[in-house]
Design a protein around this nucleic acid. Structure first.
Lengths: 194, 194
DNA sequence: CGTCTATTTGAATGTACTCAAAAGCGGTGG
DNA sequence: CCACCGCTTTTGAGTACATTCAAATAGACG
């Protein structure tokens, strides 16, 4: 099994002894999912905090009108979970589904609590990870308010250049909070401009 | 000085010995601000993570067109900082300004690093605080996408019932991501409806 | 080649914005 | 006590950005 990407990622923020590394590895599950499989379903408890080794996932919310709203994408070296559900072990607000065949390293709730005791530095590590996620999310709120749909789309393209090749356009529209038709029209406009 | 609200808040998530409590108290600064004073200015480094003892603040972003966008309000028992700036000690994206005379308990960056060493449980505490903040922010993104302005306003009213009395209407509009004129019109509609 | 899914195009509509002007509401000073 | 000032909220007309619905087109896959 290939744990190296996870360990590399961790060592960007904390230093681990080789004992600590093996403690981590002992507590993590490796799992493969197929394209279109669900990792979490709205209403179920999110049982894992997952690190993406390969593949691509979407986290989305289905509202009263059965409309899908994509909250985030996750690719290699990203984390993925319904954190609200995972932390409190209560039913999830979101669905998480694979857009490609995907390989994950998963921390179960209990294993993670154990690990926090075995390797206290991980409290620090996950604090930092979540801090960064929080800051990014806050920025996204501001962007959604202060930028037009066209500007948001351009920002998205420069920030996640690979994404547009990997996921269908109508999902990007959902992530940006606009309809697929309107995104298509924006793209039409941008084509002409250059 | 009254540290009790902070200690009570902490004890909801972690247990502290009386030694640990005094370590915390020794590392925290008490400060009073007047209405309209800035705690952080866009471009400066955010030097403190602040706990609100009394009063009310707004965190806002000023865009290229000099438009204000309120990211969040903070009242008694809330935390308040430009976290992105504080964590990385780089210039802040946001302004934080008092809407009332306000009393804060402030952790400086250095003091907090020290405290993490002295009271390792605080890593856990701040991880939990930030997790909750992150989850709330993510929910807000979804709400902004899946609800109309009117629904968002109603949600806001039920979630922060006291706020409408404490802060002017045009700031609530800014928080909701709509113009003050439009919020006024929505309120007009709602008046008629009941 | 046909089928299924994704994207584009167009017309009509709606939600929210801009700009300008008026009305409301505290406070302050004469 | 009233008049005036500054600030906030309301109202209205015209407009822009984004949506809906329907239909046409393009791509991907067996």
């Amino acid at each position: 099994m290939n744990y190296q990407p996870l360990l590399n990622y961790m060592e960007q923020h904390i230093q681990l002894t080789s004992e600590e590394k093996s403690l981590v590895i002992n507590r993590v599950n490796h799992r493969k999912y197929l394209r279109n499989q669900y990792v979490v379903q709205q209403g179920d408890v999110c049982r894992f905090e997952s690190f993406v080794l390969s593949g691509c996932l979407k986290t989305f919310y289905v509202d009263q009108d059965a409309q899908e709203h994509i909250v985030m994408f996750a690719v290699e070296n990203w984390w993925c979970a319904d954190l609200g559900s995972f932390i409190t072990q209560t039913p999830a607000d979101y669905n998480i589904q694979c857009l490609e065949n995907t390989e994950l390293l998963q921390f179960s709730f209990d294993n993670l609590q154990q690990l926090y005791l075995e390797v206290p530095q991980l409290e620090r590590f996950f604090r930092i990870i979540i801090q960064n996620a929080y800051v990014a999310t806050e920025k996204r709120i501001v962007r959604n308010f202060s930028l037009s749909a066209k500007e948001r789309y351009l920002k998205f393209r420069e920030q996640y250049p690979q994404m547009e090749q990997r996921v269908p356009q109508y999902m990007i529209a959902s992530y940006l909070g606009i309809t697929k038709e309107f995104l298509s029209k924006l793209r039409g406009q941008l084509m002409q401009e250059d």
